[in-house]
Amino acid sequence: MSGAATARGALDADRHAVGRDDSNIVLRDVSKFYGDVLGVNRVDLVIEPGITSLVGPNGSGKSTLMNLLAGLLRPTRGEISILGLPVTRPQDLFHRFGYCTQYDSFPRGATGWQFVFSYLLLHGLDRGEAERLTARALERVGLARSAHRRIAGYSKGMRQRIKLAQAIAHRPQIMVLDEPLNGLDPMVRAETIELFRQLAGEGQHVLISSHILHEVDLLSDRVILISNGYIVAEGEVPGMRAEVEEVREQPLQVFVRCDRPQWLAGRAFELDHVTEVQLHDDGGGLHLRTRDADRFLRLVAELVAEGGVEVEAVGPADSDLQAVYRYLVHEEEEPS
């Protein structure tokens, strides 16, 4: 948990630096227990505008955290404020907050249009404005042509999108989306990711939970890693490996594509900081783990200069989110 402690320390500094709780999502020492069962524990976060992904395996506390933000659960301890508003004041908060939950359920008998439109009316909009926003939301999620069909007849992907439309229809500043890419085919998935980017580009908060790491890696400005109810790391994806102490201490995986991988593997094993070497199946390169990537890369440069080996490509193989996740989240159930 030292990573989390580090993250919390950095957070405190951030909070003082930011000093703008009225434009952020702020959780202070938030814990949630279901009887004796831990939901989330001692969560301290300040989430700024942009796309933030909440990543963790099933049961790690992602949905609990999101339900706490939406006021659907009450924290056992701690405080939550969103744009400076407490979550206990729905009459103020939900004009600015949209939540796409994990629940695949809808009011009985509703069509897609009725579903989005009727809840917009509950925001106090007149019919004309509600109709305009309904049409716009359905257009944005690509359901305009199926709007007047009953949701019960929708595919899983369509149901996912109609929930998304309902969550964004009133143009909230904060969008909390629980696994919003589940069930979407690749094309719609790409369109939806683009929609998230548009929304974030408009200055909105988009908080997404996911266990599909490579997508999160591509679309997020920031990532929060959660495991067993604890925040184990948070930050911008590219810098996270360097920031998180536990990960920094782990061997870095490096790949080399070259003409003499076996010979290079032999030289690498002579180095005390290299812990593992694996040759590629095609015989055209190798992967290795080293505690001192800089020294290894210097060796490669020297060998190339001496003409001992011709290198086609070399670089870190696991500086992405997957690596950070693997190091920090010691779960049997690895995310995809």
């Binding site: 729905p90 629940y103 359920s105 809808f106 009985r108 809840y119 509950l122 925001h123 106090g124």
Partner: peptide
Amino acid sequence: LERSLHYLLLVPLRR
């Protein structure tokens, strides 16, 4: 039972 109550609790209206 229909798991649709949360939609009502997410509208900007006091419970």
